[in-house]
Design a protein around this nucleic acid. Structure first.
Length: 553
RNA sequence: GCGCCCGUAGCUCAAUAGGAUAGAGCAACGGACUUCUAAUCCGUAGGUUGUGGGUUCGAUUCCCGCCGGGCGCGCCA
């Protein structure tokens, strides 16, 4: 497997190590050098071996250098620096011949086989259908979606799922709140129930309800009426949520309804399994799960004293269902307010006997929206929130997604709307997109001038004229490594960091060197080739984030 | 009180998950378009990585103690 440029070097290094130290099993790490004086890539194996062999790293490095050099003859020059770093200086020929894959693979360039076709499910957003999506949900949506795209690129078979909590007390409250709103519209003096939903959106839905269903329904028997209100509210809100997500370019493969877990007795089955394993017990009239066996602070209730199952019970059933569907791994993405829930969920998964690592849970921290220096907290319960829809209408999908994705989701995000709206260098999205548009423009200009361009693989003269060209090629070829890292660490923001760096190299190059040169068509063809490769990578990386790559700006 | 996340330039964040001299953007200052898109580039300035210990060839990164911020801690979701 030599799809990664680091892998090519690593394979040779490992081979050499087997010859010289057959008994040592060290894990070789090859990483890009930060400083060009340290070559292109470097490895630290000398340090690792030095410890075990009780020699100085420098000595070990010297031993290794010769044999590495032999192995890597065709690819690189090997040098030792500092206290024992082994640096690889790749040959121009190697870099340029590898660049050809970019043109061959096109939109597939960057794909790696980390996942080996294993099935992985990403479940995210899963907002209760009790109100519209707000900005905080947008961050979860962007993260989950980008993560799914990155994993797919890294060779996983990915399924995106939205879990709809359409059972339980919150939904009852929603129905009751809707009824209250209807009555208010008809002039009755009624209050929204305690703990109910006070957002204005329910007024719109109430209006719609009266229009479609008529007032007569208000006089139906209690039980029947409740179901109708609940269903109407949930369907209506879910429709809005789905529309918001569509607009945000987030599409789910499966919308899984909690009710199903009750209808097909999964909840019951799971309780039985846990009971048979002896992990449950009764106390104070409730049924408990011994989550403390797996490190939880205290045991948790499955069935309440009133006989109703907790959400925890149906969540366990849900994860059992995921397992039954045959995923090798599932990822849950939750809002920060749910982090206290992680230990018990993991405990439950262990109690069911599912393999360690089957369930991965990621927490997405809150977003602070800055608008005129006024920070606002997001919360569904307050009835005061900024809908995702509004933010998107204001700054656009590309900008919103990029801002959500450019940081580690585990950290708080400050989203300055005013800055995001500026079409200037303040805005990192445009910086990247501008690089893409500039390249597109170069090709148009070349055509306009009637320049006779040779395709890259047919070039007579393939060689670097300036250092910057070489740096660009190196960065382009590193893209598959970035995809692998982002997938392995579940961190799409690494794609953003990479894009900034890549775009920066291009802009810099563009300002420093002329690309279209009538006098030197060989040079022009070569540089346009680099631009084409750059453009492909920019486009591929942007598409991992679900962000467009415009031809003009 | 307990648990989780976070603390890096004035501001927002990186640092390839233990590597070499801690880097970008914004804000400040000074330069570059009669020539491929100036939404760009080049330069100057800006740091005791919250703090005190520890682990080792090496720590912004790992461990422990403090300090500060956020979020949780229900038979709510």
């Amino acid at each position: 497997m030599d799809e990664l440029i680091t892998e090519v070097i690593k394979v040779h290094v490992q081979e050499a190590l087997r010859e010289i130290f057959p008994e040592e099993g060290v894990e070789v790490i090859v990483e890009p050098a930060k400083d060009t004086r340290h070559g292109d890539f470097a490895t630290n194996v000398a340090f690792l071996l030095a410890r075990r062999r009780k020699k100085s790293p420098r000595e070990v490095a010297q031993e290794l250098q010769k044999i590495f050099q032999e192995k890597l003859q065709e690819i690189a020059r090997v040098e030792i620096a500092g206290v024992g770093f082994i640096n690889f200086f790749l040959t121009d020929h190697f870099l340029l011949s590898r660049l050809k894959r970019v043109f061959i693979e096109e939109e597939d360039f960057g794909a790696v086989n980390l996942g080996q076709n294993r099935r992985i499910q990403v479940e995210f957003v899963s907002v209760n259908p009790t109100g519209p999506l707000h900005v905080g949900h947008g961050k979860c949506a962007a993260f989950g979606d980008a993560l799914a795209r990155v994993l797919a690129k890294a060779g996983f078979q990915v399924e995106k799922e939205y879990y709809v909590n359409d059972a339980g007390r919150q939904i009852d409250l929603l129905g009751a709140s809707l009824e209250a709103r209807c009555r208010q519209l008809l002039g009755e003096d009624v209050e929204i129930p305690e703990g109910g939903y006070k957002g204005d959106y329910l007024i719109d839905i109430a209006r719609q309800f009266l229009e479609e269903k008529g007032e007569a329904l208000l006089n139906l028997p209690e039980g029947e009426k409740r179901e109708i209100f609940k269903q109407f509210a949930v369907e209506s809100i879910l429709r809005d949520i789905r529309a918001d997500l569509d607009r945000f370019r987030v599409f789910f493969d499966v919308w899984f309804h909690e009710q199903l877990l009750y209808q097909n007795d999964t909840v019951k089955t799971v309780l039985q399994i846990l009971a048979e394993k002896g992990y449950t017990y009764e106390r104070d009239g409730a049924l408990w799960l011994k989550t403390t066996l797996w490190g939880d602070d205290k045991d948790r209730v499955l069935i309440r004293e009133n006989g109703l199952p907790t959400y925890f019970a149906s969540d366990i059933a849900y994860h059992w269902n995921k397992w039954q569907r045959g995923f090798d791994q599932v990822i849950d993405i939750w809002g920060a307010d749910h982090h206290g829930y992680i230990p018990r969920m993991q405990a439950a998964v262990s109690a069911l006997g599912l393999p360690q690592g089957f369930l991965e849970i990621f927490i997405v921290q809150f977003v602070t929206l800055l608008r005129g220096g006024q920070p606002e907290r997001m919360s569904t319960r307050q009835g005061e929130f900024i809908p995702l829809k509004e933010l998107v209408a204001e700054v656009g999908v590309d900008v919103a997604r990029y801002y959500f994705l450019m940081r580690d989701p585990a950290t708080h995000l400050e989203f300055d709307v005013e800055e995001a709206k500026k079409k200037s260098m303040d805005n990192p999205v445009y910086y990247v997109q501008y690089a893409h548009a500039r390249i597109a423009s170069l090709f148009k200009e070349a055509e306009k001038r009637g320049l006779k361009i040779e395709p890259f693989d047919q070039l007579q003269e393939v060689r670097f004229r300036v250092q910057e060209e070489r740096e660009i090629v190196k960065k382009i070829l590193y893209f598959p490594d970035v995809v692998k890292n982002a997938a392995q660490l579940r961190q799409p923001y690494l794609i953003c960091v990479y894009l900034q760096d890549l775009a920066s190299s291009f802009h810099s190059f563009y300002n420093l060197h002329r690309i279209l040169d009538r006098e030197d068509l060989s040079l022009t063809s070569f540089r346009l080739g680099l631009c084409r490769a750059m453009q492909i990578v920019l486009r591929n990386a942007l598409s991992l984030l679900g962000i467009s790559a415009p031809e003009t700006m």
